[in-house]
């Protein structure tokens, strides 16, 4: 079940959802709230011969980031055609586990019609999430796009879960022996 704007507001007032800084009144639509682009992002350096093998013992994202990430400031930043950018929302989101809410980050048509996607298959904001939301942006369009911090870049759609996840559960079946 997707929360409407009124239900999102109630959830914010009752701290079932925390968004910092709080969304402005013009950030809401009927069933979503818009988030904005932060002023920091990262580009991957293109390195000839570099092979990345995630999921294996010894794979370390921090080492990879140290050598192949390039930090950029998103103020008049040009997202070139057919390029990838790791960006973040300005807002920090907190979905307390007992709120029984999860969310999905989705693009906005105003940005999508220019050919820019804001996530690559990882839109789920799990119950219990706390932090800024990483955006895996790609410019599929033929033209370069200039991005500025504060741009309404994505929307968050909240969904009610039908129960409390194991990690937030405190009933009689908590912490069972796993067979």
């Amino acid at each position: 079940m997707i929360l409407t704007d009124r239900e999102i507001l109630v959830a914010l007032q009752t701290h079932q959802i925390e968004i910092d800084p709080p969304p402005l009144p013009d950030s809401y639509s009927s069933t979503a709230v818009d988030l904005t682009l932060s002023d920091v992002g990262f580009e991957w350096k293109s390195v000839t011969g570099l092979l990345i093998r995630p999921g294996t013992q010894g794979y370390n994202y921090h080492d990879l980031k140290k050598h192949y990430h390039q930090k950029i400031e998103i103020t008049g930043y040009t997202l070139k055609s057919k390029t990838f950018l790791l960006a973040y929302t300005k807002e920090t989101i907190d979905l307390p586990i007992r709120s029984r809410l999860a969310a999905r980050v989705e693009g906005k048509s105003s940005i999508a019609r220019l050919g820019v996607g804001i996530h690559i298959t990882a839109p789920t904001i799990h119950a219990g999430f706390r932090g800024t939301i990483q955006l895996e942006m790609f410019n599929f369009g033929p033209n370069d796009i200039i991005l500025d911090a504060g741009l309404k870049i994505c929307q968050l759609i909240f969904e009610q879960t039908s129960g409390t996840p194991e990690r937030g559960y405190s009933g009689i079946f908590q912490d069972q022996t796993i067979r």
Binding site: S38, K65, L86, T92
Partner: peptide, 11 residues
């Protein structure tokens, strides 16, 4: 414990 890629993130 080192800085993560995003704002307010740690690895």
């Amino acid at each position: 414990i080192v800085d993560g890629p995003g704002p307010s993130e740690v690895s």
